[in-house]
């Protein structure tokens, strides 16, 4: 049994039509799993389902063996999930440090060590710690956003298109940081538009088409699969 195992997920937003059909996602400890696929394939929706932002008609989500299907997103944060939304993922008029503090809002213990860890992981965050997060560049904001999510010391970190709208150099930098995070033993589930680059760092890749699993394999294998390359990676 994987650390995160979401099985048989079927459902959509509110009372709307089903977007996901029998979707499966799983991530092992310290592993990077990447969800890729064409526009409208339900990539973000699949991840939001894991985070409890969706009404699932069928299926179950288990984290570390515990069934969390019925929990709200906030409760899932308590259970060890961290989520970085694609947009509006920082507090723009608060300082970078305050952003991290807010990330630790649910913690009652001393979170200074965690802040230090985040600073170590993201030197840019440390440098800008007293600046307002809204004044930072796109790549730096994403680092702050990831840092904020790490403040709860999650066991699973979910990232919704962390590299959307940043330059290729910044993207590489961000991926490096994400690998670093995974090395500390945190499992990562990530939705990505930049499929090729994302699969390169992925231990496991999910190719979704119309809310269903189309291909699932290691990142390497998917990159090597001619069918996947032709259809989803542009040759």
């Amino acid at each position: 049994m994987s650390f995160l195992s979401a099985t048989n997920m079927t459902g959509g937003y509110g009372a709307g039509p089903d977007i996901l059909h029998d979707l499966e996602l799983s991530v092992d400890k310290g592993e990077i799993a990447v969800i890729v696929g064409p526009n409208g394939a339900g990539k973000s929706t699949g991840m939001k389902a894991v985070f409890g932002m969706l009404n699932l008609r069928e299926g179950a989500v288990k984290l570390d063996g515990t069934d969390i299907t019925g929990l709200s997103p906030q409760e899932r944060v308590h259970k060890g999930m961290g989520f970085v939304p694609q947009v509006r993922n920082i507090f723009p008029t608060m300082s970078v440090r305050e952003n991290l503090e807010m990330g630790a809002f649910i913690r009652d213990d001393d979170f200074e060590p965690t802040i230090e860890q985040v600073y170590e992981l993201f030197p840019a965050v440390y440098e800008k710690r007293n600046q307002n997060a809204g004044e930072l560049s796109g790549g730096q904001r994403q680092q702050v956003a990831v840092g904020r999510a790490l403040m709860t010391q999650p066991k699973l970190l979910m990232l919704d298109e962390p590299t959307a709208g940043v330059s290729p150099i910044v993207m590489d930098e961000l991926f490096d940081r994400i690998i670093e995070v995974a090395k500390t033993g945190i499992s990562i589930l990530m939705v990505e538009q930049n499929a090729r680059q994302a699969l390169e760092i992925a231990d496991k890749g999910y190719v979704l088409v119309q809310g269903r699993n189309a291909y699932t394999d290691t990142g390497e294998a998917l990159l090597a699969d001619p069918e996947v390359r032709r259809t989803f990676l542009g040759g």
Binding site: P73, Q74, V77, H78, F83, P85, R88, N89, I90, F91, P92, T93, M94, E98, E101, M102, G103, F105, I106, R148, T152
Partner: peptide, 22 residues
């Protein structure tokens, strides 16, 4: 204060504040 900061956070970005457990 923690409470004051949580107010600013809520004012800044309601969704993220909810996600953070405020």
């Amino acid at each position: 204060t923690r409470t004051g900061k949580s107010m600013r956070a809520y004012s800044d970005n309601e969704d993220l504040a909810l996600l953070s457990g405020i």
